[in-house]
Structures are given as structure tokens and as C-alpha cells.
Amino acid sequence: MPLVTSIIQKIAPQIGAVVVVEPEYELVGHITFKNGKKVFFTRSKFNINGLGSSEIAKDKGYSKFFLKHFGYKVTEGETFFNDKICEKIGDSRNIDAGFEYAKSLGFPVFIKPINLSQGKLVAKIHNKTEYYQVAKKIFKICTGLIVERFYPGKDYRIVVIDDEVIAVYQRLPLSVIGDGKSTILELIQYKQRVFFENFGKRVIDLDDWRIKHKLQKQKLNSQSVIPNGKIIYLLDNANLSNGGEAIDFTETIHPDFKKLAFNIAKDMGLRLIGLDVITPDITRPMMDYVIIEVNSAPGLDHYASIGDTQAQKVEDLYLKVLKALEVDSTGED
């Protein structure tokens, strides 16, 4: 059973709520509170955030515009569209314009779909050939893409609800650690089995072209044997849903970054957010940072898997969500 569903079923009785879960996939459910109010949920999406604000947050281009408007530092980048959209709206920002922009930023750059989640098709590109390969893949399933400047630093997520920090963690890209005898493919397959045991799903896409590309950049392939203890990164983006790992910084985040997350949530009209930010060190005063994106339905399955403390924090978050939904439903908030 998915983590969020199991948590909701566990904690709902604590506040006298009744949960009905669709039995086949167990991804969606219906909650009836003891005051008679009713709400639905699907995966990690609840009615805690307004529809308009959630839709803006989901669209990377729109959310970046408003974040910049509010005075926050955002990744420098532009949106480009496939030929069909360009023709429809009379816009010249096509795939070729995207390459010229990438060239003006200076390689490497990041390229990402405009409205997909969980790091799908996000890639770090280094030249013209790579740009067109990735852009064409994106345009097969998405109308737009974003070309962004590459920013060095550590990738963190800050999860807040209202004026409370729930979780803060550094996100590390998918990697394997050599043992001096196993091939990279064998190490990936082992990691895949561990993920499957923990989450009941295949987190790593063994056929992901980005893994092959990343290995080639390091003059490696799936049959390479890595020295004992050596870490090999397999992706450039640090999404946990792609097999990345997390290091907890909840207890050591600097107040500057707490304030940043609270202010962004308020300005974007969101009560629950996962704020993704790049900065040298989130435990020190905020001297330099850049916002990657704002997530209005942050998934916390992988964070909860770190340990019992983290799992309890996630459970506490969803209890707060249920209580907030019950109050909001009555119009008493």
C-alpha cells in the first residue's frame, strides 16, 4: 500500500474520521470527518492548497515568473515550445531558439519539461547534439520546455505547512558505491531491489537514457567494475523519486531559510509546500541561494524511509493536514 494511503488510514481514527480507499490501486481515498464534512485525496494531493495556486506552482514557467515578481532569486531560464504551439500562438520561441538561448547562457545548462514532475526528462546538457536529443524527447510528450542556467551548490528541499517546518533534507542524485567486484549494472539492480522492498515499486528506470549518458561522460558503462568505496553518480538531477537519496537537515536549518520558505508559501497562496533551493549550506546564514521550484504536493515517501524519526515527522504532517482540512471545511479557519 502506498505510504500516504497507509498513513491516512492509520491516523484518521485519531480525529474520528472515516477513510474509504479505492481497493485496486489504493492511491485515492475519501475522508469523512466527524463533523460530517467530506474530502477526497489522491496520492499526496489534498485540498489543503487552493486550485489556482496549485496550478501555478505546477507550471514551472508561471511559478518562476511570480517568484521573480515577488523578489525571490530564481533560476535564470526561458520557456520554449514545440512547432505546433509556436504556430498556434504566433511565437518564435521554438526548438532552435532554445538552443541559441542555451548557447548564450553557456554550457552546461539544464533542460526540463515545463509541467512534468518527479524529475522526468530533466537533463544536464553540454553541447548542441545533447540539446537537440533531449529537446526532441521532451517535445514528444510535452508542449514546452525550460532551458536554465546551471548553478553549483547543494540541492535542498524544505517542507512547511503554515508556519511550521516539517522536514528539511539535502537531495543527492542517484548513485552507486563500488565494491571492487560488481559491475555498475549489478549495483544498480541491487539498489533497485532495495527500493522495491521499501516502496513496492521500481524507482530506478534501468533503461533511462540519462544513466547511459552520465556513465559515458565518466568514461564508464554498465559493465564497468568500480573500486571499493568509490561513489559513481548516475543522474544529474537529485529527485528522490528517481532513486536519489536524502540527508536530514531538519534540526539544523538556519532561521533565514525557514523565513524564506514561510514567505514564499504565503506569497504563492499555498499552505503546504516543498521548496527546492540550491545554496552552499542551509545551516548557515542565507548569503546566496536560488529557487529551483515550488511543489504544492510534495511526496515524502523517500524521506520517511530514512528512519523512524523521519517517518514520524511525515505522519505528523499528514495529521496536521487532516486537522486543517476539517477546520477549513467548516469555514472556521
Rank of each mutant, 00 (worst) to 15 (best):
Y156T: 08
A57Y: 08
N115C: 02
Q133V: 00
G98W: 06
G77F: 09
V147F: 10
E130W: 04
Q170G: 07
D162F: 09
A167L: 11
K154F: 06
T79M: 14
F150K: 13
D163P: 05
L172I: 15
K137E: 14
F70G: 06
H69Y: 08
K58S: 10
I166E: 07
S104M: 07
S117V: 01
D155S: 10
K154D: 08
F66W: 10
I158E: 11
Y156Q: 08
P113D: 01
K124V: 01
K73A: 06
K124E: 09
E76T: 11
F81C: 01
T129K: 14
E87H: 08
L105Q: 03
N82T: 03
K154Q: 13
K112G: 04
A57M: 05
Y101R: 14
H126K: 15
Y151L: 07
K58H: 12
V109A: 09
E148K: 13
K60T: 11
A123D: 14
P152I: 09
S104V: 05
I138C: 13
K68N: 14
D163M: 09
F99D: 00
L105V: 02
S104P: 03
G119N: 14
N82A: 04
V159R: 09
T129R: 13
A102Q: 02
I114L: 13
C142S: 14
K68G: 10
I95V: 11
N94S: 11
D163N: 15
Y131G: 05
L116S: 14
V147I: 13
L172Q: 14
Y132F: 15
T143L: 02
K60M: 12
E87D: 12
K137T: 11
F107E: 12
G106L: 11
V134R: 14
K128N: 03
I56G: 04
K58V: 00
F70R: 09
R149A: 14
